[in-house]
Design a protein around this nucleic acid. Structure first.
Length: 571
DNA sequence: CGAAGAGAAGCGCAGCGATC
DNA sequence: GATCGCTGCGCTTCTCTTCG
């Protein structure tokens, strides 16, 4: 991000699981800069590098609601991203998007999206490395897609290239013949393209992103649709895809792939991602039919897999067990187990151990080999083993080559994410950079700002709404805060069994994810993982008295907001 | 490089004493 | 007696070291 001037008010906002619902402006920011201004609280305009003219959005109080989903769609916002939002007066906000590697997302400079969709000119947005571009499917593109010349030249598609592999969102690969235009550098698709279009249910007007995955003899390009979030549409198109005949393919590496085997698993991943973008409460709306349909798809997967591994009964039994586990996975929580973030320790440079929950949730404990996709999209085969007596899955052959090949060092932070299931899962490995400077500076300001806000805060004590406690050293040492049975009852924690993730928020709107746990089968609940981090970040040392307030009590996700913090002497 | 051992850390459970 | 905050114990998981 460009070094923001302190004269331009700005705030940052991390995107949590329920970010798709709305964008909340921090209370202190709203009160200081927006409250009382004409038009504020009813409408606003969000501008970004993606579209000069901005998005008109509606506000309810300090929340941006109407039009926010479209903005999030267009920018492909995801959980873990964060936004830096500058306010230059009036009702206009400039939004910069930062991804999980803390780097600003490039959308192409000052590109006008609407013009691109409807205009006749070449609509092209290409990243700085020219390894990907964004476009819109014109009617003629459903027959034959014309790649932009600069994209072809940058990736040598125009040099002795007669075939490419297109990898769709489900990870399925489609061989497509291509031809170079006469006297030009541009390349267009021939045979195989229409199968891809039909198989993926592509339609006129669909926006897409093509990215170069590998530039070998037969280049591999990944294809992603942009902005298709509607559940029904996703499901409908997935069905169409399933109906398409997919032959067994032989990759350039000479390996036999069974695209249909992995496809269904990918669909689940895809759906999980979709669900992350909807409100938490929507999870409850998944009908029995939704789950049954998912199971039916998995049954097909099982049958096909059995045909492949029919001779190996023992292996098949193991696979069955693991698939049963997969079927029991709750789609609403899958994203939390599809990836994890870690720090490279010295031992991991020779052999990496996966967290047990991660390897179990993704069936790594029943696999002997995985492919690890690095930042450049290159796949590294890595053998894995299950450690006896401990259930730990660890890497063996091939791992150190990956480490050396990518210059990974001790202390590097990384994210592993499963991007393809099956007998040989594919895991993406992404290095995560240090937190953005601006974000760190904002975090440092939080306790002081919070204190000022709490000092202003008063309110009557509504039973069940507040949790008032004195911080003890033991509470911080063990990262546990007991909520009290009455508080749990008042908020229906036991009735709806809301154990799991929860949100702790300070008055600035900054949120921490914590874990709410039930003590055995009792009616006692306590906050654990995340509690100490939250307490320390907000100056809640031992001896302090604080008040937490229930936010959005009707929500499935318990959210507690720190609204008062005092010393014992103040009471 | 692969495998396994050992200690540290995390976590669930049961139960204690204080309080209401 | 019920509730609450807290702690001890033991099992599981994680991390690091050592060995072949």
């Amino acid at each position: 991000m460009a070094n923001p001037s302190p004269k331009i008010p700005h705030f940052f906002q991390p995107l949590l699981h329920n970010f798709a619902a709305n964008l909340a402006i921090p209370v202190a920011f709203y009160e200081k800069y927006l409250e009382g201004r004409p038009g504020c609280g009813t409408r606003a305009e969000l501008r970004s590098r993606l579209r000069r003219q901005g998005w008109k959005v509606g506000m309810v109080g300090r929340r941006i609601v109407d039009g926010w989903a479209e903005f999030a769609d267009a920018h492909e916002l995801k959980v873990g991203y964060f936004l830096v939002i500058k306010y230059d007066g009036g009702t206009v906000f400039h939004v910069s998007v930062f991804d999980t590697s803390a780097c600003e997302v490039e959308y192409g400079d000052e590109h006008d999206e609407d013009d691109a969709v409807e205009g006749d000119g070449e609509e092209l947005k290409m990243d700085s490395g020219q390894t990907s571009y964004v476009g819109t499917l014109r009617p003629s593109y459903l027959i034959s897609l014309h790649f932009p010349a600069c994209f072809c030249v940058a990736n040598k598609l125009n040099v002795s290239c007669s075939e490419i592999i297109v990898k769709d969102e489900a990870g399925k690969v489609w061989p497509v013949k291509v031809k170079c235009k006469k006297g030009g550098n541009a390349v267009y698709t021939m045979g195989g393209w229409r199968s891809f279009v039909e198989g993926n249910g592509l339609q006129k007007g669909d926006r897409f992103n093509f990215r170069i995955v590998s530039k070998g003899k037969i280049p591999v390009l990944s294809f992603h649709r942009i902005g298709m979030r509607d559940q029904t549409e996703v499901a409908t198109r997935a069905k169409r895809r399933k109906a398409a005949e997919v032959p067994e393919l032989v990759t350039s590496a000479g390996e036999v792939e069974h695209p249909s085997l992995d496809e269904d698993e990918h669909d689940n991943v895809e759906q999980d991602d979709e669900e992350d973008t909807v409100e938490e409460d929507d999870d409850e709306d998944l009908s029995e039919e939704d789950y049954e349909e998912e199971d039916m798809v998995k049954e097909d997967y099982d049958k096909e897999e059995d045909m492949v591994d029919g001779d190996d009964e023992e292996h098949k039994t193991e696979l069955d067990h693991s698939r049963k586990r997969m079927k029991n996975r709750n789609p609403a929580t899958d994203d939390s187990t599809a990836s994890y973030v870690g720090t490279m320790c010295r031992a991991y440079l020779t052999s990496l151990y996966f967290p047990v929950y991660f390897s179990r949730a993704n069936n790594l404990d029943s696999c002997s080999e995985i492919d690890v996709e690095d930042d450049r999209g290159k796949l590294w085969p890595v053998k894995i083993r299950l450690k006896r007596n401990t259930n730990l899955v660890y890497t063996v052959g091939g791992w150190t080559s990956f480490i050396r090949g990518n210059g990974i060092r001790k202390g590097d932070r990384y994210e592993f994410r499963v991007i393809s299931y099956g007998t040989k899962p594919v895991l993406s490995f992404r290095r995560i950079g240090p937190k953005h400077k601006a974000a760190l500076e904002e975090e440092e300001k939080v306790p002081e700002l919070a204190l000022r806000h709490f000092e202003k805060t008063t309110g009557s004590l509504i039973p069940g709404k507040y949790l008032i406690r004195t911080i003890t050293q033991a509470s911080l040492d063990r990262s546990r805060l007991f909520l009290g049975i009455n508080f749990a009852k008042m908020n229906g924690l036991a009735d709806r069994d809301r154990s799991g993730d929860m949100i702790l928020r300070n008055s600035q709107g900054k949120s921490w994810v914590a874990t709410l746990k039930r003590e055995g089968n009792s009616s006692r609940f306590f906050i654990t993982s995340g509690w100490t981090e939250f307490a320390l970040a907000n100056g809640l040392e031992a001896g302090r008295v604080f008040r937490l307030e229930v936010v959005e009590p009707e929500s499935k996700l318990l959210t507690l907001k720190l609204t008062r913090r005092v010393t014992l002497e103040d009471l």
